[in-house]
Amino acid sequence: MSEYTPFEMIAYTGSRVLKDERIVFVGTGLPIIAAMHAQLTHAPNLYMIYEAGSLAPILEMGMPLSVGDTRAARKACYLKGLCGAFELTQRGCADYAFIGGAQVDMYGNICSTIEGHNYDKPGIRFPGSGGAGAMAANCEKTIAIMALEKRRFVKKLDFVTSIGFGDGAPDYREKAGVLGSGPYRVITNQALFGFDEATKRMMLLEVKPGRTPAEIQELVDFELIIPPDVKEMAEPTDEDLRLLRDVIDAEGYFLKRVIKK
């Protein structure tokens, strides 16, 4: 088996999580790559929504570099604007939200607005919610991609941008007035997480071959639920890597990026 990079592992795992005959609301970068990989392999009838307004495009001009890229509109079935895309979602047509963020907590709430506590004068101002807050609220299931670091898997967020299970109360999302069922998977290059149905807390599902659950817990600032049957993450085959490298992101816009320390 060939060597693969952390980004390739994330994209491949993202692809594995997506089921066929479903609609995924994608964010820029790895989510688009994961969804394209799924379409080329196990999920030929998976379709994408892009928030600028396109549903089920055929990406024959190449991978869109952003969710607003004009290429994401190519041969779509339905092409409106942001209201159209998000109203389809609010109506129940988007099965997966595929988002990222700067911090995540044990209930799958995500921050992408600020670092630091003071809203009016934060330590760092990030770009903001974008579509993520609406996707996490109203797509049926939320999948998040995160870098597995202690400063990102935190006990308490600086700001809740995208709703997860809130404080873990069973009725938090209902009281919040949102529709989707909430966090489903958190994908990192070393572990795949899900959520415990009863407590709504993050649960380790799979670890990268060679890593132990204890090592993963070391990289997370809150206590994970670690069931006895943690599996090994599947690794991309040569054919998967060929698709990712030569077909989907042939120019290496996302997969060849260097991770900043």
Binding site: F86, Q90, N109, T113, Y119, S129, G133, A134, A137, N138, F159, V160, T161, S162, I163, G166, Y172, R173, K175, A176, G177, V178, L179
Partner: peptide, 11 residues
Amino acid sequence: PVRDHGGSDME
């Protein structure tokens, strides 16, 4: 009326 923002700090 919308079905997002609630339960996040944007609220």
